[in-house]
Nucleic acid binder design. Sequence first.
DNA 1: GCTAGATAGTTGCGCAAACAACTACTTTTT
DNA 2: AAAAAGTAGTTGTTTGCGCAACTATCTAGC
Lengths: 147, 147
Amino acid sequence: MGIKDDAVEVRAQGWRTLAALHGSIEAELEKALQASSDLSVVEYTVLDALSRQDGWHMRMQQLARATALSSSATTRLVNRLEDRGLLTRILCADDRRGIYTELTVDGQKLLEEAKPVHDETLASALEAAESMPELEPLVRALGALQV
Amino acid sequence: MGIKDDAVEVRAQGWRTLAALHGSIEAELEKALQASSDLSVVEYTVLDALSRQDGWHMRMQQLARATALSSSATTRLVNRLEDRGLLTRILCADDRRGIYTELTVDGQKLLEEAKPVHDETLASALEAAESMPELEPLVRALGALQV
DNA sequence: GCTAGATAGTTGCGCAAACAACTACTTTTT
DNA sequence: AAAAAGTAGTTGTTTGCGCAACTATCTAGC
């Protein structure tokens, strides 16, 4: 019984650590991306996901999954980015319910500008987290994932 | 140069994995806690943090840190829980700017009711994540943290 | 002891999120 | 071939968040 209870406690502690690390990284990225490119973290995630996609286009549902957002939030997120000229909607030829989104040249340019900021901020956020005793083990585990 | 670029890419991939795992666990917990106890994940986090605190009281700032929320959001979060009678505000004697929050009996009762739901949902969410190839390594690393 | 600056918490405001209801299109069933 | 069920995306509405401005209190410097 004690063993089982321990497992529960270990999982809960692990989840708290995961949430804390996620929160601190996200906050850092939010600040940095907002300041450098007027992008939120999810907005950056969309641009980045599109740029890493073959053919540079994705459907709304894929985008919703990639950002962990509801489909209504995805609609409005894409609206914002479209209004800023960073991506365009393209009707799906084979499935007329579907809509592809694709980076514009401006979108690619802004992403290229934001990416170094993102990567450097991520590195420094991880470094900062590594110096916090309660986060350190998870940061190390994260770095050792797929070397 | 290639080595350095690789490190950047590994970190970015690790961050995406972390965010995806965090998002999927949080969504599961949100659903389950909402259904069973009408609590959001942050609300549960507050109750849980208070219950694990010596003397069962924390100051607003501590709570803000524990939940990764702004202080204004913390004020309103505490308002909601106080309105529901789950915790009470207590003025700080030694520092009259400060305010302690403390679980009420009802708060303790609701937490006791929600905790098994939380723990079981967490376990099943981790199990589900473990069967997704892109999340599996991180889940394993999380489980191996502090055995 | 008094002013200057820091810290704790709250409030006004704009924004982005989820949910549910809706339209449009596709696939399945019969 | 028509009806039923399912899927893709959008819109109305409510809720909770962060930022900036504010009050109240504490702490230093002189």
